[in-house]
Design a protein around this nucleic acid. Structure first.
Length: 172
DNA sequence: GCCAACGTTGGC
DNA sequence: GCCAACGTTGGC
């Protein structure tokens, strides 16, 4: 058998077509909170400037994937609503906008480095707080809850999604 | 390719 | 505001 080098541009290690996947996406309520999503219906998930998070949007997300809308960097962090992926990834316009806080001077118009998807509201929920999530044995595996995790977009397993749904259904 | 310095994230 | 953890940058 011959070993084949892992090139930089091999297709991602997951199937192209798959059942619905689930994600946790962090947003600072001071920037875009659940009430903004309620008001707007859907938002462009701009401003992601981390390659891993970008690759999730670009390579793995599919329209219809479930999203836990998570409030971060705030007094009460936690899941504030359910949402869903509403578009494929497309170039994030703010990278080219010198006036934007997300401006990236290294981004070239022809070859954008940053993309975003659209995310649309499914429903606002009660705030499922981070501390409540941490008390759930079934959620100790959640990537977003791992020590040191800073990724703003992380995958959620079907089992974790179920647990969160049950917690939200049990107490509104 | 190593790795120190630096910047950012995000809970507390 | 603190600070641990992590990603990125850039000199070598």
């Amino acid at each position: 058998m011959q070993l084949v080098g892992r090139g930089r541009h091999l297709p991602p290690p997951f199937p192209v077509t798959h059942a619905v996947a689930h994600w946790l996406m962090k947003s600072e309520p001071g920037e875009c909170g659940i009430d903004d999503l309620v008001r707007l219906g859907s938002v462009a998930w701009i401003g992601v400037r981390n390659y891993q998070a970008r690759n999730f949007m670009r390579d793995a997300m599919q329209v219809g994937d479930g999203v836990l809308f998570y409030h971060s960097s705030c007094a009460e962090p936690g899941v504030a609503g359910l949402a869903e992926v509403a578009s494929a990834a497309y170039p994030d316009a703010t990278q080219f906008d010198a006036a934007s806080p997300y401006h990236d001077p290294k981004a070239q118009a022809g070859t954008p480095r940053w993309v975003n998807v659209d995310v649309k509201l499914v429903r606002k929920t009660r705030l499922l707080t981070l501390s409540e999530m941490r008390q759930q044995p079934a959620l100790v595996t959640m990537q977003a809850l791992q020590r040191g995790n800073r990724l703003s977009i992380t995958p959620v397993t079907a089992a974790e999604w179920h647990t969160v749904s049950a917690l939200l259904a049990a107490r509104r």
